[in-house]
Nucleic acid binder design. Structure first.
Lengths: 222, 222
DNA sequence: GTCTATATTGGGATAGAC
DNA sequence: GTCTATCCCAATATAGAC
C-alpha cells in the first residue's frame, strides 16, 4: 500500500495534497477554512486538553469536514504545527515591530523585556502550548518543526538586544536562548500558581540584568 | 466493595493510610516500597509518557501490589507529587550543599549558575516533568503542591545569589523566579532540539548577567 | 479473573461532485 | 482548486462467556 505500485504510470504518483500549508504561514494569511480549523483546535485544547484534540472534534467545532485537515495541513501533525506556530509566533509579531522602531540601547532592551512580559502573560496560549509539549517531543515530524520555530525565536531575541551580533557569537546565542527560556519558564510558573506568583517581577529583573550585561559586554570589547 | 461494610468490626475500619507521605520527603528517606513505586513510575513515564502511568503498570514495574500506592501516598496524585518532587528537588540538594560552602560573591554566583546548568542537563527528568505538566495544571490537588515546590525552589535561588534579601524585595523575588524559569526553559529547548541546541551557552550568559546585575544592585544601594 | 467477540473511535486515505 | 461523502485499518473499550 505504501508503494501503491499499481498506480498508472502517467498518474504523477498520488495527487499530492495541493498545498500542505507550511507551518509558518501566519494565521491571518491562511485560507478561512484552514484558519477556522486552527482556531477550533485551539479552543478545544484550552477547554479539554490534548485528549480532546481529535480530528472529528476539531472538524465539528470548526463546522468543517474532517478531510479538510488533510487537505490544508497534510495530516494532524501539520495542523498541530500550525497551531503551535500561531501560539508562539503571532504574539511575537507585534513586539517585533515595536522593537524595530526603537534605536539600539537600554531603552530598546527594556521595551523588549516588556514585550516578553506581555507574551508570557498570555497564559491561555501557554496552557495550550504546554499541553502539546509531550506530544511534540514524542513526534518525529513535529519536533524538528518546533525546534526551527524556537531557533527563529532565539534569533529574534538576539537581534533585539545585541543587533549585529555574529552568528557564531556564543554569548549572543546564550542570551537569545536565555530570553526564550525565561518567557516559557515564567509562563509555566504563572500557570502553576496563578494567584500568588508575580510574573512581572521577573521581567523587571530581566530588563535590568540584560542591560547590565550588554553594557559590561560593550565595555569589555572596547 | 468500596464500602466493604461487611468487614469485621474489630478490624479497625480500613487501616487509614498511616502516613500519606508528605510530598517533600526525599527519595532516599522513603520506605523502600514507596521508593520503589516512585522509581517505577519514573521509568514508566520516561519510557512511555503519561498514558503509560496506570496504577497497574506502576505496581507491576515496581514488583509491588497496587494497594501500596494508596497505603503510602493516599492516591495516584500523591504518588505523582512525590515523583515531581524527586524530579525537581533531589537534583537541587547537591548543588545546594555546594553553594552553601562558598562565600557570597561572584564566585558563588557562577558556581550556582553552573549547578543550574547541570540540573537542566538532566533531560530525562525534564522529559518526565514536562510530560506531567498538563496533568498537574489540570489537577486541583496536585497543582498547589507543585506550586509550593516551585516557591521553595525560587527561595533557594534567592539565597544563593542574594543572601539575606528581604522576603518582600521584589527584585530578589524576580531574580529567584527568573533563575527557576531559565532552568525549565533551557531544558525544554534541549528536549526540542537535542542535537543542535547549546544549553551551556545560556548558563554562561546567565552567570555573567546575574553577576553584573548583583554588582550594579550593590552599587546602587550603597 | 481471563479471554474472546464485538462495537466504537481515531487517524488517515480515496473518489468524485462542484 | 475546494470540498463532501465514504471507506479502511488499527487501537481501544466493552460485554458477555467461561
Amino acid at each position: 500500500m505504501s508503494g501503491s505500485s499499481d498506480d498508472h504510470i502517467d498518474m504523477p504518483a498520488a495527487p499530492p495534497p495541493p498545498l500542505p500549508l507550511p507551518a509558518d504561514v501566519p494565521l491571518t494569511a491562511m485560507p478561512s477554512v484552514a484558519r477556522a480549523l486552527v482556531e477550533a483546535a485551539r479552543r478545544l485544547l484550552v477547554a479539554g486538553g490534548f485528549r480532546a484534540l481529535t480530528l472529528e472534534a476539531i472538524a465539528l467545532e470548526a463546522g468543517e469536514n474532517k478531510a479538510m485537515v488533510r487537505y490544508y495541513f497534510g495530516d494532524k501533525d501539520g495542523l498541530l504545527a500550525a497551531l503551535v506556530d500561531s501560539l508562539i509566533r503571532d504574539n511575537q509579531v507585534a513586539a517585533n515591530a515595536e522593537m524595530r522602531a526603537l534605536q539600539p540601547g537600554p531603552k530598546r532592551i527594556h521595551a523588549w523585556a516588556d514585550g516578553l512580559r506581555r507574551v508570557a502573560a498570555d497564559t491561555e496560549s501557554f496552557y495550550a502550548l504546554f499541553s502539546l509539549v509531550p506530544h511534540i517531543i514524542g513526534s518525529k515530524r513535529l519536533r524538528p518543526r518546533i525546534a526551527d520555530l524556537y531557533e527563529w525565536y532565539r534569533g529574534l531575541n538576539i537581534e533585539a538586544c545585541l543587533p549585529g551580533a555574529e552568528a557564531q557569537d556564543r554569548h549572543a546565542a546564550g542570551l537569545g536562548a536565555l530570553l526564550t527560556a525565561v518567557v516559557d519558564g515564567i509562563a509555566l510558573q504563572s500557570l502553576l500558581d496563578p494567584d500568588r506568583f508575580d510574573p512581572d517581577a521577573a521581567f523587571l529583573a530581566l530588563g535590568d540584568m540584560v542591560e547590565a550585561y550588554v553594557e559590561k559586554r560593550r565595555e569589555a570589547s572596547s
